[in-house]
Amino acid sequence: MNRNVIITCALTGAGDTVGRSEHVPVTPEQIAESGIAAARAGAAIVHVHVRDPQTGQGSRDVALYREAVERIRDSGVDVVVNTTAGMGGDLMVDPQRPTNHLEGTDLVNGVERLAHVEELVPDICTLDCGSLNFGDGSLVYVSTPDILREGAKRIQELGVRVEMEIFDTGHLWFAKRLVEEGLIDAPAMFQLCMDIPYGAPADPALLATMVNQLPDGAVWASFALGRMQMPWVAQSVLLGGHVRVGLEDNLYLSKGVKATNAQLVERARTIVESMGASIASPDEAREILNLKPKA
């Protein structure tokens, strides 16, 4: 069991959730304010996506990232900033003519996915460690070994900690290869992402199996979607890991009750502390992850 638990709050994501809850932040100001509130509630890390303020759709716009991250940094609230670097991997395949790319395709190379990371140099950024049939329909998330190696090398050169996002068991296999090849600095940081169709299901036995395959010295967290978000907090802590909650993964505090990010962090904190563990501060998270001290 983990006795000092880092809570990450994933603030907004890029999924089609804006119309489903008024609490999902859209503008950079809303995203920053939601992150600040989550940090005050006990999150040591905020995971940042941005959205087009006009459409609510996920975006790779560097200016939007700049505004959101600078607002968080300038707030005076201490929190570790973790930006996604997963945008730019969406391939919409025409099922009748698979060589055609349909509307919704946003596919760029590994370095182009890092434009905002290059400029802002966050504490952490993500690396989605494999391709995936993403839900029903014709969306494939594309993240090939060559793309991943290119991205990991550049992130390492920038001095940013990589959070390797693992959506299935083969992704974990390849992520361990990145560690062996020296493309991931110690301590290797893994996020085990469960219940995303069609990756690894939210099965406690599968989570335990994946944890048992992590390399020595790894730091890890996991999460699951929807109603499994809070049970997964307990699963993760019991197996020795850290936790992630937030509106990217779940919109509800309880059945029919829409949540804010701060409320989800507060609920996770209650679970962790009721288990006899403590919540890691941002400085403790920096120590666990061997990050640079706050400037």
Results as ranks from 00 to 15, higher is better:
residue 89 G to W: 06
residue 149 R to I: 09
residue 148 L to A: 05
residue 179 V to W: 02
residue 158 L to T: 09
residue 167 F to R: 04
residue 133 N to I: 04
residue 161 R to V: 05
residue 192 L to Y: 00
residue 190 F to N: 00
residue 128 D to N: 15
residue 192 L to K: 00
residue 98 P to E: 08
residue 114 L to I: 13
residue 154 R to D: 05
residue 174 F to E: 02
residue 128 D to K: 10
residue 153 K to V: 13
residue 187 P to Y: 08
residue 86 G to K: 07
residue 185 D to V: 04
residue 74 D to E: 08
residue 119 E to V: 14
residue 134 F to S: 04
residue 177 R to P: 00
residue 138 S to N: 11
residue 77 V to G: 06
residue 142 V to Y: 03
residue 104 G to R: 13
residue 151 G to I: 08
residue 180 E to R: 07
residue 170 G to C: 06
residue 183 L to H: 02
residue 88 G to L: 13
residue 68 A to K: 01
residue 92 M to P: 04
residue 175 A to I: 12
residue 171 H to E: 06
residue 192 L to N: 01
residue 97 R to S: 14
residue 147 I to L: 11
residue 156 Q to C: 11
residue 191 Q to P: 00
residue 175 A to W: 05
residue 74 D to C: 07
residue 95 P to K: 05
residue 128 D to H: 13
residue 102 L to N: 09
residue 94 D to M: 13
residue 67 E to R: 03
residue 103 E to Q: 15
residue 83 T to D: 09
residue 134 F to R: 01
residue 103 E to L: 15
residue 81 V to W: 00
residue 61 D to H: 02
residue 85 A to N: 09
residue 86 G to W: 08
residue 164 M to L: 14
residue 89 G to A: 13
residue 196 I to K: 04
residue 157 E to I: 12
residue 59 S to G: 04
residue 180 E to W: 01
residue 150 E to S: 05
residue 85 A to E: 09
residue 60 R to E: 10
residue 96 Q to I: 15
residue 155 I to H: 03
residue 93 V to C: 11
residue 201 P to M: 15
residue 79 V to H: 03
residue 64 L to F: 03
residue 94 D to V: 10
residue 185 D to C: 02
residue 199 G to S: 03
residue 189 M to I: 03
residue 81 V to E: 03
residue 92 M to H: 08
residue 117 V to Q: 07
residue 83 T to A: 14
residue 154 R to E: 08
residue 94 D to C: 12
residue 180 E to A: 07
residue 113 R to P: 12
residue 135 G to A: 10
residue 176 K to D: 02
residue 157 E to Q: 14
residue 175 A to R: 09
residue 181 E to T: 04
residue 109 N to I: 09
residue 85 A to H: 08
residue 127 L to N: 07
residue 132 L to P: 02
residue 87 M to A: 09
residue 119 E to H: 09
residue 106 D to S: 15
residue 67 E to C: 03
residue 165 E to F: 11
residue 62 V to E: 02
residue 128 D to Q: 11
residue 179 V to G: 02
residue 133 N to K: 01
residue 61 D to S: 05
residue 185 D to M: 03
residue 192 L to Q: 01
residue 67 E to A: 02
residue 106 D to G: 12
residue 75 S to L: 12
residue 143 S to C: 13
residue 129 C to F: 07
residue 168 D to R: 03
residue 190 F to P: 00
residue 103 E to W: 15
residue 129 C to N: 07
residue 167 F to S: 04
residue 94 D to A: 12
residue 196 I to H: 01
residue 139 L to R: 02
residue 130 G to M: 08
residue 107 L to E: 10
residue 178 L to H: 04
residue 163 E to T: 02
residue 136 D to T: 07
residue 154 R to V: 09
residue 143 S to Q: 07
residue 101 H to P: 13
residue 89 G to M: 12
residue 132 L to E: 01
residue 128 D to M: 14
residue 200 A to P: 00
residue 75 S to F: 08
residue 99 T to A: 13
residue 150 E to L: 11
residue 61 D to Q: 06
residue 169 T to L: 11
residue 180 E to L: 05
residue 82 N to R: 06
residue 140 V to N: 01
residue 154 R to T: 06
residue 73 R to E: 07
residue 151 G to N: 05
residue 116 H to C: 10
residue 64 L to M: 08
residue 188 A to I: 05
residue 156 Q to M: 12
residue 121 V to Y: 01
residue 130 G to W: 04
residue 171 H to P: 07
residue 168 D to I: 04
residue 66 R to S: 02
residue 138 S to E: 06
residue 165 E to Q: 11
residue 196 I to M: 10
residue 107 L to D: 11
